[in-house]
């Protein structure tokens, strides 16, 4: 799990944002891709608030870009502190302040824990479980990662949502004196692994693909407004058929206007080096590192193999879910 706090730098503390997802859904990779995603943007930059966080950021960025290696999944609780520094923007509000005139800053406090802690099969120790629940309860924003490939192969997204969500709702909505009917959190629901052909093909079949006119590479995108449609389409091929329950629960427990969907990829699509363009017949940007146990037979599960990154990393919607949450939590209703 990763948690983020927003604050006006040098002023009052921000509010926590939790990251939530099944093992292998890409939480750690998403954080590792943050540095590259920001480096590819003209507006926002990232700075570390302490030495350990700086080292992690440098190591992860280099590993992803030069070493072409995916970060190892978290095995214990780790904290990092980064600051996103944005462009000048008016009018000023409580969570922004000037870096020079009009510069915006978002301080992130990240706590990374294994995704397995959300499930029933490998529950954390009682102390860690309490910390997990406290963190969710104290967060005002959540980044929820839905891995459609894992859901297609294993189908345990609901398992990793239902338990913690029920506990969270009991604590907030069922406590003494509680009157609210929905959880107060803002939630970015990220449909990850958009670079997988199965996900891309589903989006294509649903007619959801478009490209940004200013993108020189021509990478396909699914607009946030249509991301839920893709999620519904992907839920229909869940291995256990329970993915629709996950979507129903998310819709029931959170305010409709506090949910936003994103179609994301931490490593992005493969870029054809010869043309510098996206090649729709050759999109996968990762390569398995060891032979399949059954050559030429049924393809082994993606979730059970190790991969390396094949080419350049072009993250898709890695920064956007965090920025949207930050803006909404600041009370900025103009945020798209």
């Amino acid at each position: 799990m990763s948690a983020m706090s927003t604050e006006q730098a040098g002023a009052r503390p921000g509010k926590n944002i939790a990251m939530w997802g099944a093992p292998g859904s890409g939480k750690t990779t998403m954080l590792a891709a943050l540095g590259i995603a920001l480096a590819r943007r003209p507006d926002w930059l990232i700075a570390s608030s302490d030495e350990a966080s700086m080292e992690y950021l440098i190591t992860m960025t280099n590993a992803l870009s030069d070493g072409r290696a995916f970060p190892l999944a978290s095995e214990s609780l780790e904290s990092y502190h980064w600051t996103l520094i944005g462009p000048e923007q008016q009018p000023r509000s409580w969570w922004r302040h000037r870096r020079g005139p009009g510069a915006l800053r978002i301080s992130l406090s990240l706590v990374d824990v294994p995704g397995g802690w959300y499930g029933d099969k490998n529950p954390p120790a009682p102390e860690a479980a309490k910390k997990l629940q406290d963190n969710l309860a104290q967060s005002e924003g959540i980044v929820f990662l839905f891995d459609p490939i894992r859901e297609f192969e294993i189908g345990d997204a609901f398992e990793h949502l239902h338990g913690p969500l029920t506990k969270l709702a009991s604590r907030i909505l069922g406590g003494p004196g509680a009157t609210a009917d929905r959880l107060p959190h803002y939630i970015s629901i990220c449909i990850t692994k958009f670079d997988e052909p199965q996900v891309l093909d589903t989006a294509r079949q649903l007619g959801l693909l478009t490209t940004r006119p200013d993108d020189p590479h021509g990478f396909p995108v699914v607009r946030s407004e249509e991301a839920r449609t893709l999620l519904e389409g992907l839920c229909s091929v869940s291995a256990t058929g329970s993915a629709d329950l996950m979507l129903n629960n998310l819709s029931k427990y959170f305010h409709k206007d506090r949910i936003k969907f994103f179609v994301t990829s931490s490593i992005g699509f493969h870029l054809n080096r010869d043309t510098g363009r996206f090649d729709q017949g050759n999109v996968r940007n990762m390569i398995p590192t060891t032979p399949s146990p059954s050559l030429g037979g049924a393809p082994p599960l993606v979730s059970e193999r190790e991969f390396r990154i094949r080419g350049q990393v072009h993250p898709i919607n890695v920064v956007e879910p965090l920025l949207w949450l930050g803006r909404r939590l600041s009370g900025d209703r103009t945020a798209p």
């Binding site: 052909p197 017949g281 050759n282 999109v283 996968r284 390569i287 050559l295 393809p299 993606v302 094949r310």
Partner: peptide, 17 residues
């Protein structure tokens, strides 16, 4: 040999094209 060919494009085999 042992290994199958690469597909011309991405396909369900998950082999890179």
């Amino acid at each position: 040999g042992a290994r199958p060919p690469h597909p011309p494009e991405d396909d369900p085999s998950r082999l890179l094209p």
